[in-house]
């Protein structure tokens, strides 16, 4: 066990955990931010996607000891009032069915639009291919990403 000081959603958090503990479980069990989901534990489904700096990463494969000074953003911290353009587009298109994968989808989509504000269909498909939606909302996810891309201030 060791103490780790983490910057999550702009706040400082201190946790005392084994250094191998993945950020997924640090977030869910220790910091009680449960918006980041457990789906597979092997970086195959994308439900646990968070931002490390500006990049989308699978938090189930990110040991707490590898984070250091880098800032982590989770779905809870993507925007203050749930009004990030991607979140707004998700509401406009009414994307979710069960909703379990959607936090991961939104974190992947928002990272994509940050580095590529006007992605093509192929670029969207490539960036989102690591996120499984068992309910099959892919057509709406793609539409929502395009909606967000066409809005301002992505």
């Amino acid at each position: 066990m060791a103490i780790f000081n983490l910057n999550i959603n702009g706040s400082e958090h201190s946790v005392d955990v084994d250094s191998n503990t993945p950020m997924l479980w640090v977030l869910r069990d220790h910091i009680k931010l449960v918006g980041t989901k457990y789906g597979c534990g092997i970086a195959q489904c994308g439900a646990c996607t968070v931002h490390l700096g500006d990049n989308a990463v699978r938090s189930c494969q990110l040991p707490v000891s590898a984070v250091g000074e880098q800032k982590i953003t989770t779905i809870e911290g993507l925007s203050e009032h749930g009004d990030h353009p991607v979140q707004k587009a998700w509401l406009e298109i009414d994307v979710p069915q069960c909703g379990y994968c959607q936090a991961g989808q939104i974190m992947s989509a928002s990272a994509l639009l940050k580095r590529n504000p006007n992605p093509s269909d192929e670029e969207i498909e490539s960036a989102m291919n690591g996120n499984i939606c068992r309910c099959g909302t892919y057509t709406r996810i793609k539409k929502a990403i395009k909606t967000a891309a066409s809005s301002e201030n992505v």
Binding site: V34, K37, G82, L91, P96, G99
Partner: peptide, 21 residues
């Protein structure tokens, strides 16, 4: 009508069995 839970879902509110603490 829009999904009444959509806002909670896209903001990562605890909703699921897995989220219970």
């Amino acid at each position: 009508q829009k999904n009444v839970d959509a806002k909670s879902i896209v903001t990562g509110r605890p909703l699921f069995g897995m989220d219970i603490q």
